[in-house]
């Protein structure tokens, strides 16, 4: 009996040890800083090194049109980028999951992975070299006679979107492939056999089956896009207006940690709200979706 008790005890200890790194990581690097930020966001500087509890930071957000304008813009652009990513990723995922065999599907995965072989900075700078007025693509357009003069392809919202989609593609493809692979081909054949055409099969069979994967991909991509800093700022140039940039500005160039913390929490609230809304709208449960990511 003591032998058994000891075995149970050491099993529990082993479990604790296995989870320890994750728990330490979570508490030291995620929970504690967030608590600190939460405290920061609810105070106001009244004199050098003197602070009082206050809602001023949040009030500023709502009274300064600029901030919520950028906030809203970031949310809408992120939603748009997510939808675009889904549109682009779906055929790729379908090809990997259902059409390509062996090497081919591995190759396609690698194609989606290539953007991540270089750092985001290098990748984005590459885009800038490609798209700037004196860059490769505008020159090519002139060369082909499509435009009379080199056009500036940088610093447009469309450029930001393209960059974001490119960066997010893999995070949409992976959960989609997972959920499409688990779709029994016989279901598609059965639907076809019962008289359905491509559109109806997609609507009635494929999308309902892949819904957890779609939701998972959308959540991940939306969060990544919302929190992206480099791509919108570099590709968007003087018009980027991304909310993370506002947070960076508050923290780094304004030394206004209180405002930055408040902005950070508003962004957190936004992504939480969007995730909740996405789950509600697609009728998914959080646990199901998370298993797909």
């Amino acid at each position: 009996m003591p032998e058994l008790a000891r075995a149970a005890w050491s099993r529990r200890l082993l479990l604790a040890l296995l989870l320890a790194p994750a728990l330490l990581w979570l508490s030291l690097l995620i929970v504690l800083p967030h608590l600190d930020l939460a405290l920061l966001s609810f105070r106001e500087r009244i004199a050098p090194r003197q602070f009082v509890p206050s809602l001023a930071q949040y009030r500023t957000f709502f009274t300064e049109p600029l901030y919520w304008h950028v906030f809203l813009r970031t949310a809408l652009m992120s939603a748009g980028a997510t939808a675009l990513t889904l549109l682009v990723a779906f055929p790729i995922a379908w090809t990997i999951a259902k059409l390509a065999r062996g090497r081919m599907s591995a190759l396609l995965f690698v194609v989606c992975l290539i953007p991540f072989w270089v750092s985001e900075t290098v990748r984005t700078l590459g885009w800038m070299i490609l798209l700037r007025e004196s860059g490769v693509l505008p020159q090519l357009l002139v060369h082909l006679g499509i435009t009379a003069q080199p056009v500036e392809l940088l610093y447009h919202d469309a450029t930001i979107l393209v960059g974001l989609v490119y960066t997010s593609l893999l995070f949409m493809v992976v959960p989609l492939v997972g959920s499409l692979e688990s779709l029994d081909n016989a279901l598609i054949e059965a639907a076809y056999d019962l008289g359905a055409k491509g559109g109806a099969i997609l609507r009635e069979i494929v999308i309902p089956h892949a819904a957890p994967g779609i939701t998972a991909g959308c959540i991940v991509v939306f969060m990544l896009t919302l929190g992206n800093y480099l791509t919108p700022t570099l590709l968007g140039g003087k018009n980027s207006l991304w909310f993370t940039e506002q947070i960076y500005n508050q923290f780094i160039t304004r030394f206004n940690w209180e405002q930055g913390a408040a902005f950070g929490f508003l962004l957190l609230a936004l992504s939480t709200a969007m995730v909740w809304f996405g789950l509600k709208a697609s009728g998914q449960r959080f646990s199901d979706v998370m298993r797909r990511t």
Binding site: L66, K238, N239, L241, Q246, Q250, R254, F255
Partner: peptide, 19 residues
């Protein structure tokens, strides 16, 4: 003097946001 950068920051934010 402390505080001026906040004033300037707000101005720069609006410049950045303007179209």
């Amino acid at each position: 003097p402390p505080g001026l950068e906040e004033i300037e920051g707000g101005v720069m934010d609006r410049v950045k946001a303007a179209n």
